[in-house]
Design a protein around this nucleic acid. Structure first.
Length: 213
DNA sequence: CGTTTTTGACCGGCGC
DNA sequence: GCGCCGGTCAAAAACG
């Protein structure tokens, strides 16, 4: 099987570290309003299921709009307010709270920092990042919670339009393994010994490299 | 030497 | 209109 034949896989738009972190905060983000959005909830759900049961269900997640966003219409940038001034369109955002000593949490994507600002009522600055993929316009902001500086708030804006390399590295060997089990099960004669599913991580990686060629 | 980060300047929205 | 604030730009510096 060629790697190109796999369905396009999109990684979650949030820190992978937060999924496995036992210290994940599960309070909704404050000062944010829940809003309908075009966020890929299926991705979020399936990704949070990969949690290993340590933090079942969703990670600390809140989708919210900024004060300027308007979710009643899709083309907010075309709308005008009373004054006649155009409202700037703010894409849907997702914020994650993660208790971590590290500011930058690995989410599998590659980011380039493009700004940093001091935030009012917070001693910690807010950092602005953009996805380095040339066609991707996803941004994220990272800052520490003013009330509890051990909590990192990662806010994602937009949906990646490309697969996550890191996630693919993990999933391809896994998919190869599942495919090999299926093949062996199908090929094993009736009433034969049960097919062994045991594989080491090294074997999985080797198989993936061979199959990806 | 190409890429990434830093950081001050700039801009637009908002409240008064 | 003015000042505040958050977000972005872009030149310089740092890094690998």
């Amino acid at each position: 099987m060629e790697a190109e034949n796999f369905p396009y896989l999109f990684a979650p738009s949030f820190p992978l570290a937060s999924l496995n972190s036992p210290s994940l905060i599960d309070q909704p983000m404050q000062n944010s309003q829940y809003a309908s959005s075009d966020i890929d909830l299926a991705n979020l759900l399936s990704s949070s299921m990969a949690n290993g049961g340590e933090n079942p269900g969703f990670p600390c997640l809140s989708t919210f709009s900024s004060s300027m966003a308007n979710y009643e219409g899709e083309n907010v940038n075309k709308n005008k307010v009373k004054s006649g001034r155009k409202k700037k369109y703010i894409p849907p955002r997702v914020a994650f709270h993660t208790r971590s000593a590290e500011d930058i949490l690995d989410d599998g994507y590659k980011w380039r920092k493009y700004g940093q600002k001091a935030v009012k009522n917070s001693i910690h600055p807010r950092s602005y990042y953009r996805c380095t993929h040339h066609t991707c316009n996803v941004k994220k902001q990272i800052q520490r919670l003013a009330k509890d500086t051990s909590v990192v708030v990662t806010t994602y804006e937009g949906i990646h339009n490309h697969p996550c390399e890191k996630l693919m590295e993990t999933l391809i060997p896994l998919t190869m393994w599942i495919a090999s089990i299926e093949l062996r099960c199908n090929n094993s004669p009736p009433n034969s010994e049960p097919v062994s599913f045991m594989r080491t991580g090294a074997e999985l990686g080797k198989r993936a490299r061979v199959c990806a060629r």
